[in-house]
C-alpha cells in the first residue's frame, strides 16, 4: 500500500491529512484515495503546507551561518519533529463495489485512515467522466478554483495514454459548465495547455 499520510481532520466535503515524512507532500491537484467502510473515497489535493506542531510557536530562521538548507536540518535535528507537513483533500467521489460515483459519499472518512496515492489505473477508472469538476468548482476554497481544476486535470492526464485527447475531452466538459463565462474558461484552458 502506497500510503502517503494519515487523516487528522475529516468532514463530508474534505479532509486533512498529515504526511509521515516532512515535506513529502503529494502534488497539488493529484488524486488520492482513502479506504473506508465498504467504499473507497476519492479526493483531490487542494491545499498543502508545512508548519510548526504548536499553533502558537512560529518557526524562526536558523540558516544564517549554514551553507545549505540541508545543513540547517542537520544542525537542528529536532526540527524534523517540531514541524509537520499537512495537505487538504477535497472529496470528489467514491467507488463502491467497483462502480464509480462522482458525488459525495454518504459518510466522511475516518480519522487516522490512511491516505494513498492513486495508481494510473485508479486515475483512469475515476476520470472516465468529468462530473467531479462540478464539485471542485462549487466549493469555496482558499486556492483559486481555476488553479485547482487545471492542476487536477494536468495531473490526471499523466495517467492517460493520450494526455492531449484527455485534456481536450475535459476542456469540452468545462466549456459546457462555463457556457456563460468565457473568461473563466479561458483562464483554465490557458493553464491546461501543455
Amino acid at each position: 500500500m502506497n500510503k502517503i499520510g494519515e487523516i487528522v481532520e475529516s468532514t463530508s466535503t474534505e479532509f486533512t491529512a498529515e504526511c509521515y515524512e516532512l515535506h513529502e507532500l503529494p502534488a497539488l491537484g493529484s488524486l488520492v484515495k482513502v479506504t473506508a467502510v465498504e467504499m473507497e473515497i476519492f479526493g483531490i489535493v487542494c491545499q498543502s503546507g508545512t508548519a510548526g506542531i504548536e499553533p502558537g510557536r512560529h518557526p524562526v530562521a536558523r540558516g544564517k551561518d549554514e551553507a545549505s538548507e540541508e545543513a540547517v536540518y542537520q544542525s537542528s535535528p529536532q526540527l524534523m519533529k517540531l514541524l509537520r507537513s499537512e495537505f487538504q483533500v477535497l472529496v470528489v467521489g467514491h467507488i463502491i463495489n467497483g462502480k464509480t460515483y462522482q458525488y459525495l459519499p454518504s459518510k466522511p472518512a475516518h480519522i487516522h485512515a490512511f491516505v494513498q496515492a492513486c495508481s494510473p489505473e485508479d486515475i483512469k477508472q475515476f476520470s472516465q467522466s468529468f462530473d467531479f469538476l462540478n464539485i471542485m468548482l462549487n466549493n469555496r476554497l482558499q486556492i483559486p478554483t481555476e488553479e485547482l481544476v487545471a492542476a487536477g486535470l494536468r495531473e490526471m492526464s499523466k495517467a492517460h495514454a493520450d494526455p492531449h485527447a484527455f485534456l481536450i475531452a475535459a476542456g469540452k466538459s468545462l466549456t459546457v459548465i462555463f457556457s456563460g463565462d468565457y473568461h473563466r474558461l479561458k483562464t483554465i484552458l490557458a493553464r491546461l495547455k501543455q
Partner: peptide
C-alpha cells in the same frame, strides 16, 4: 496559434 483552445471550443461553445 492557440489550436488547443480552438479544438476544445469547437462543437461545444
Amino acid at each position: 496559434s492557440d489550436t488547443f483552445t480552438a479544438e476544445i471550443l469547437e462543437g461545444t461553445a
